[in-house]
């Protein structure tokens, strides 16, 4: 039940885009039509679900202070937490590359529809942000990390699908001042949606 709460929380209240504004670069760049936006959203969700538990295990059994005590008593006061940034990003980058190769080999159709987005994901701040939040919040178990990862991913997917749908309509039905067209108006829409999402802050679960 606890984990389910975290899952729901991560989708709505701690939404990566509207609450933390992470992963904005690809969010703004790839939200011109719904189909590609959903493709990228699925890829991001997938990477969050994979990397968050791995980084959680790394954090608990290798990086945090005293985590190496399973190697023997003389390692009990080793603190490697200053290495966590490098370890996390290395895991994320290598997982991205691995997933890219696996998808290319086993499912060429998925690869051709997702292909260009996969390398982009290594530098999506939402993924590294997820791992850093995980480190900050001291999750109790690897399942919590898994649920939070899934929730953040779905929240991101929801956000990018919504903004892409709005932008598709906007292109045909509205008359925006010229200098504001394209990226400018997208910023303003995102801000308004962010303000709307703030209403979720009042919910306690």
């Amino acid at each position: 039940m606890e984990n389910f709460n975290i899952f729901i929380r991560s989708i709505f209240i701690d939404n990566m885009i509207f609450a933390y504004f992470l992963g904005m670069c690809s969010f703004l760049a790839v939200s011109k039509n719904v189909k590609t936006a959903v493709g990228l959203g699925v890829a991001v969700t997938f990477m969050l679900v994979i990397t968050l538990p791995i980084n959680y295990l790394l954090q608990t059994y290798v990086l945090s202070s005293g985590a190496l005590s399973w190697l023997g008593p003389e390692y009990a006061d080793v603190d490697l937490s200053f290495l966590s940034l490098i370890m996390f990003i290395a895991v994320i980058a290598s997982m991205t590359q691995l997933v890219e190769m696996a998808v290319e080999k086993y499912s060429p159709t998925l690869y051709s529809s997702l292909g260009i987005f996969l390398p982009l994901i290594a530098v999506n701040c939402a993924i590294l942000g997820g791992s850093l939040f995980m480190q900050q919040r001291d999750f109790p178990s690897v399942w919590t990390a898994l649920c939070a990862g899934g929730g953040w991913g779905l929240g991101w997917l929801l956000a990018i699908a919504a903004i892409a749908a709005i932008r598709e309509r906007l292109a045909t039905y509205s008359n925006i001042p010229k200098p504001l067209r394209g990226i400018g108006i997208t910023f303003i829409i995102t801000a308004l949606m962010g303000i709307a999402f703030m209403s979720f802050l009042g919910i306690k679960i």
Partner: peptide, 9 residues
């Protein structure tokens, strides 16, 4: 944070 978006816009 949303206002930062509007200032950038």
């Amino acid at each position: 944070p949303p206002m930062a978006l509007i200032v950038v816009a």
